[in-house]
């Protein structure tokens, strides 16, 4: 069972603050982290390896500093890691990103399952998994909350939808994206950290991937950001005054006037 996990290094956005003076993101003190949803993907892969044997390879497209994230993946139990890094990859949208990942996965050749997180917390699109599947012409199941069984080249998984969950069977190799509910990721181990420190993580660029220059990075992106702005806030709330009793009383009156209760 050879598994490839796609990881992305993201700024920990729960800590993101906006500087009100300059209207820019305060990047100081924001640590880069592994996209939280991808940590569930990695854990799922490691558990499958523990159950069925095989190998886990972590791949990530990103700047050179994503190397540290891939080392963390090794400390958690990934066997190998590959960094896809090239100045030509910068500015990629999901289409160009999934093309780049697909090239790398094609180069890796041997795999039974590719696992992605449901989405990243910076881009929040959730598009790379399904686009990657299509570029590799593989079956795809999104929002997997449980891997029930893998047997005879088939997987049986639970997949979350709005109304509940579906049990889906699909042949391998396949691509899945996983949700938070699937597991609780483990912590690194001391022996894993030692292994990670000495691990050799190759960096593949456009040349190594034999990638079409027009399909990677900004050049390969179909979408472009034309404007960036800060969310408009509506006008400030009417603050209800007085003692808690009178605040509550005037709230109830207002809600009734508006036909809300």
């Amino acid at each position: 069972m050879d598994i490839i996990v796609c990881l992305k290094q993201v700024p920990g956005t729960t800590q993101v603050k906006i500087d009100p003076q300059t209207n820019t993101l305060v990047r100081q003190g924001i640590k880069n982290i592994t996209n939280p949803f991808d940590t569930y993907a990695l854990e799922a892969a490691i558990r499958l390896k523990e159950q069925y044997g095989g190998k886990v390879t972590a791949i990530s497209m990103g700047p050179p500093q994503a190397d540290e994230m891939l080392r963390e993946a090794i400390s958690l139990g990934a066997d190998e890691a590959i960094l896809l890094s090239d100045r030509a990859f910068a500015g990629a949208d999901t289409l160009a990103t999934s093309y780049t990942l697909a090239r790398a996965i094609t180069k890796i050749e041997k795999y039974d399952l590719i696992i992605c997180g449901r989405q990243t917390i910076d881009g929040d699109t959730g598009q790379v998994g399904p686009e990657l599947a299509e570029m590799l012409s593989l079956p795809f199941v999104a929002y997997v909350s449980k891997i029930e069984e893998i047997n005879n080249g088939q997987m049986r998984v639970q997949r979350m939808i709005e109304e509940g969950y579906e049990v889906i069977e699909a042949p391998l190799p396949a691509v899945i994206s996983v949700v938070k509910e699937i597991n609780v990721p483990r912590l690194p181990s001391l022996r894993g950290i030692t292994r990670a420190k000495s691990a050799v993580i190759p960096a593949w660029g456009a040349k190594e991937l034999d990638a079409d220059q027009d399909r990677v990075g900004l050049a390969g992106s179909a979408t472009r950001v034309i404007k960036i702005f800060f969310p408009q806030r509506g006008k400030r709330a009417e603050i209800l005054q007085g003692s808690p009793q009178s605040q509550v009383a005037s709230l109830v009156t207002k809600l009734r006037e508006n036909g809300l209760i």
């Binding site: 700024p11 956005t13 729960t14 993101v16 906006i18 993101l25 917390i121 910076d122 881009g123 929040d124 979408t223 472009r224 950001v225 034309i226 404007k227 960036i228 702005f229 800060f230 969310p231």
Partner: peptide
């Protein structure tokens, strides 16, 4: 984007 801290217009 960025956890809702920034809005982006995309074409």
């Amino acid at each position: 984007t960025f956890g809702g801290n920034i809005m982006a217009t995309i074409v």
